[in-house]
């Protein structure tokens, strides 16, 4: 794995290289070089099997992180190529020409994160949801709980109690000890 990373880093600028296991390494490559690097890995280094593509929302950094996880069936090890793209304008070069399965991943990411892959086939087709006009649902700022409360009909037949707060009300009422309790009691 070390040699591979050395070889790669002589060609591309690698960041965040993490040897997660003996047979798994992650490295971040710039958006411009990523597809080239993935193609190189596929055609020259034997990483012919695309295990998966994935996307992580790093909302606090304003980035989406794409992942191209490649497997080398001969050496039996994996490399995860990570690409950070801008969250405001999420666009990435399509890789659908490299594997027949890529367009599905890209279509899914378009739906669930709103990432655009120009030229990727059937990108605009619905994947798992139909007629979705909310925030793309895998984004961190989409709150499933809030959505459920808003969309469905809570029965309203449940009520819970916090043990500490309940005991305060029962055992020592009118004795607020913290500023918050004083505020609550008022």
């Amino acid at each position: 794995m070390k040699e591979l990373i050395e070889k790669l880093s002589s060609k591309y600028e690698l960041q965040e290289v993490v040897y997660q296991r003996d047979n798994l390494v992650f490295a971040a490559i710039s958006k411009e070089n990523a597809i080239e690097a993935v193609t190189y890995l596929r055609d020259y280094e034997g990483y012919t099997h695309l295990v998966m593509m994935s996307c992580v929302d790093w909302i606090e950094d304003g980035k989406y992180q794409l992942l191209y996880l490649l497997h080398n069936p001969k050496l039996k090890n994996d490399i995860g190529i990570k690409v950070y793209i801008d969250r405001e304008n999420p666009e990435m070069v399509s890789a659908h020409h490299l594997w027949k399965s890529v367009w599905t991943y890209q279509r899914e990411m378009h739906e669930s994160f709103g990432i655009v892959f120009p030229g990727s086939p059937r990108l605009e087709e619905n994947f798992v949801v139909e007629g979705w006009d909310e925030t793309p649902f895998m984004r961190r700022d989409f709150d499933t709980h809030e959505y459920a409360e808003k969309t469905y009909f809570p029965r309203g037949n449940r009520k819970t109690n916090d043990p500490a707060e309940y005991m305060r009300k029962k055992l020592y009422p009118n004795q607020p000890v913290t500023a918050k309790q004083r505020k609550d009691d008022k």
């Binding site: 916090d162 043990p163 500490a164 707060e165 005991m167 305060r168 055992l171 020592y172 004795q175 000890v177 913290t178």
Partner: peptide, 16 residues
């Protein structure tokens, strides 16, 4: 973090 202790503490400290 159950908070059972808070009621027993004479000062009702925010233990959890």
């Amino acid at each position: 973090a159950c908070g059972i202790c808070t009621a027993t503490c004479p000062a009702h400290m925010g233990i959890p």
